[in-house]
């Protein structure tokens, strides 16, 4: 009964949120920019055609870097805007729990990102027309990219709940996402290893998105990588909830 009610609530909120993307120009601008950037990197930098290989590694390789800037941009309005316009007060005084509101917003944005990813299908079509790519690896790459997008998004959702300014949310979110991308890189681990205990250095070096995405884009969908991305999302969305509960002021 309660679960039924809860899922109805989430569905109603999610529908409104998703429709909100497409009734404003935001969605279309976002989709066009996303596809152009991905296309540019894939075909002009990685030179997918000239590589002469029937796989999509040159395509997936760029996803973290495009996500780094575009997903914080997509996520920055999630809560900051509602807080600024006062509609957050409206929604959270309806019979809705904080968790339902957060999940609805998150899933709406995630579905939107899923639509963006799905619209890159011409690249797949091109490669499979020209050659005979391993479709398992392609599907695996998409699943990994979608999971990573969710992790980026959960960070953006969290920073968006911290402020009523979308700009602050965007910048914070980019910085945190950049940290997660670079966490496995030697310069970062070296900067930390000078003062932090070794277990912390080890922890940070394993936090990197890139190392977890690396095996996925090669076509290996490891349960540990899935668990990793999901736990980033759960952690960030829980933080989102705590922030919302504590920052309900004017």
């Amino acid at each position: 009964m309660r679960i039924q009610e809860s899922s109805n609530t989430v569905r109603a909120l999610l529908k409104r949120e998703l429709a909100g993307y497409f009734t404003s120009p935001v969605a279309y601008v976002f989709i066009v920019i996303f596809l152009m950037l991905i296309g540019f990197f894939t075909f002009y930098i990685s030179r997918l055609f000239e590589a002469g290989q029937a796989d999509l590694r040159g395509f997936f390789e760029w996803h973290p870097w495009v996500f780094l800037f575009l997903i914080p941009a997509a996520a920055m309005r999630l809560w900051a805007d509602e807080r600024r316009l006062g509609t957050m007060e409206l929604v959270l005084t309806l019979p809705v729990t904080t968790a339902e509101a957060i999940l609805a917003k998150f899933f709406a944005a995630w579905i939107f990102l899923g639509i963006c990813l799905a619209l890159t299908f011409p690249t797949v079509a091109t490669v499979s027309y020209l050659g005979d790519p391993d479709m398992g690896a392609v599907v695996c790459g998409y699943v990994g990219s979608f999971l990573m997008a969710g992790a980026f998004l959960s960070i953006g959702s969290m920073t968006s709940s911290m402020t009523r300014s979308q700009v602050i949310s965007f910048i914070l979110s980019v910085v945190i996402c950049l940290f997660f991308i670079l966490a496995g890189y030697p310069p970062v681990t070296e900067a930390v290893s000078g003062w932090a205990p070794s277990w912390l250095v080890g922890f940070i070096s394993r936090l990197g998105f890139l190392s977890h995405f690396a095996s996925i884009k090669r076509g290996v969908l490891d349960l540990r990588d899935i668990v990793y991305f999901l736990s980033v999302m759960i952690f960030m969305l829980s933080a989102n909830g705590v922030i919302l509960e504590n920052r309900r002021t004017a």
């Binding site: 409104r16 909100g20 404003s24 316009l85 509609t87």
Partner: peptide, 10 residues
């Protein structure tokens, strides 16, 4: 609520 917040695009 104060100032009657609504979703303007709807």
């Amino acid at each position: 609520p104060e100032n009657a917040p609504v979703y303007r695009e709807m």
